[in-house]
Amino acid sequence: MVGEMQSMNTILFYLLAASAVFSALATITRRSPPASAIWLVVSLLSVAGIFGMLGAPFLAALQVLIAAGAVMVLFLFVIMLVDQGEESLRPRIVSFGRVLGAVASGYLALILILAIWKPPFVEAPKSGAAYEAPLTLALAVVGRYALVLELVGVMLLVAAVAAISLAKRDTTAGEG
């Protein structure tokens, strides 16, 4: 029974990982921005599934609500605000710089994988309900990381004000 659960988890991990990687690739290769946005939603939802399997159900929920929900709605709004129809679907240009960029990314992947390739390869220790409970995370956030939480709140306020003032139409231009 335990072995069955194990292999179920393994299959689920590979399915979610494959869907995350495939839809991330689709995100950066689709030509039209709305298609990219929808593929990005699929990728972020797969990552949310991985979060859930890593014993972080609260963060999986946050990923669905914030990343795949709120941020993607914002993205789609802006795409519709700025999209220029045919102009945004210009033909691809395969330039030297872009090939070089892709090759450099492959090299980055190689050295990162070499850096993390450290035996022993072990399965996760037993976690139990205490680790998975959102209470554990909450106590860490309002305890040890209380100052960081305050700073994040200030950062969100500043970001909201900055976004409003940046996107606001300048109504005073030409008067002074």
């Binding site: 990343a67 860490a140 956030v141 969100l156 970001a159 976004a163």
Partner: peptide
Amino acid sequence: QALAMFIMAVMAAEAAVGLALVVA
């Protein structure tokens, strides 16, 4: 987990400011 939660907040802020810049 705590750090991942803060990164999500940064992600939201980055998207808001970045997209406002794009609109401007």
